[in-house]
Design a protein around this nucleic acid. Structure first.
Length: 307
DNA sequence: TCACGTCAAGCAGAT
DNA sequence: ATCTGCTTGACGTGA
């Protein structure tokens, strides 16, 4: 089990997801911004290793406007050395990586323009992982998309569109159950047709499910991951008390997480804490997992792999 | 230096 | 109709 958090580190004094307004786009601006973002990503990953955090989601803002027509900058070539360095850092420390394109990425949209933009966005995400030389256990996660008034048609459209995607995307794409439109059961239907692994979101499943217990859900999604995909990925959050249903917790609820760890003991998976205070809660989660014997520190893992 | 309107992009549900 | 949340507030103009 590896534990991590998404995109932003609040301790390290380095913002790895800097962007700018499209109006101020220039080659100079994007070079300067990406330089900063790559440098900070390195800093954050080093911080993570020091704190036994071996799972990280790279921000989609790493290369701002990468999939937009305005961007004709050859970022892969320009930053080839930096990407190589990052790839080595990630592989050497056995860090698990994910990316999560945002809510505008909808490959099942009936609007062909939105569909095309979404494919470009997915290709950008896949290329980032490719040019770091990462294998197919580094994933790009999306939700199935919109319902557009007819769920069956929209799911069929997703499947058709998926089958036409570039292999660079298909090798990395995983689907995540969401909290109101497409449940774990819906993701399993898509899996049956396409073989896409399912990234399980614990909190979404609590809010929107077909009656499966946590243990049943784990049995169902865990087998959708093949050997090349690595072990299953899980997103974890919990409800912030007193806020509207669906609000992610500000800080980890230690007892709740401990219970989760105990209930899922018979499964091996990597877990990302989608908690607002980021690495702070992730570090708490590491302590809890360690105390349950679910987790080995980086130094002991490295010794094992050498010995 | 700081307040605050706005930011590439979509959808669904709540108000 | 308008607002909010979503993996994450942050950019940058104007005072």
């Amino acid at each position: 089990m590896k534990i991590g958090y998404p995109c932003i580190n609040l301790t390290v004094d380095c913002q790895g997801n800097k962007t700018f307004r499209i109006k101020s786009y220039s080659e100079e601006k994007i070079i300067e911004t990406v330089e900063n973002n790559l440098r900070c990503l390195i800093e954050i990953l080093k911080f993570n290793v020091k704190h036994d955090l071996y799972f990280f989601r790279i921000s989609s803002d790493l290369i701002p406007f990468a999939s937009h027509p305005i961007c004709d900058f050859k970022w892969e070539r320009h930053f080839a050395d930096e990407f190589k360095y990052l790839g080595n850092l990630i592989r050497h420390n056995e860090i698990r990586i994910s990316m999560h394109p945002d809510q505008f990425t909808l490959i099942n949209s009936p609007d062909s323009k939105i569909h095309e933009r979404s494919v470009s966005e997915l290709l950008y995400h896949s290329k980032v992982l490719d040019c770091m030389g990462l294998d197919f256990s580094s994933k790009v996660q999306i939700h199935i998309g919109g319902v557009y008034g007819d769920k069956n048609k929209s799911m069929a459209r997703f499947i058709r569109r998926y089958e036409k995607l570039d292999a660079r995307i298909r090798n990395r794409l995983v689907i995540e159950n969401d909290d109101r439109s497409y449940s774990l059961r819906d993701c399993l239907c898509i899996f049956k047709e396409t073989g896409i692994p399912i990234l399980f979101d614990v909190f979404h499943h609590e809010l929107f499910n077909s009656g499966e217990t946590l243990e049943e859900a784990f049995k169902l999604f865990a087998r959708t991951w093949r050997l090349n995909d690595g072990i299953p990925m899980v997103d974890y959050s919990s409800q912030e008390d007193g806020q509207r249903i669906g609000t992610h917790a500000r800080s980890i609820d230690n007892e709740k997480f401990r219970k989760f760890v105990i209930r899922t003991r018979s499964f091996d998976f990597d877990v990302m804490l989608e908690i607002k205070d980021k690495e702070k809660s992730a570090i708490e989660a590491v302590k809890i997992a360690l105390s349950d014997g679910r987790f080995s520190t980086g130094s002991s893992r490295r010794e094992m792999s050498h010995g």
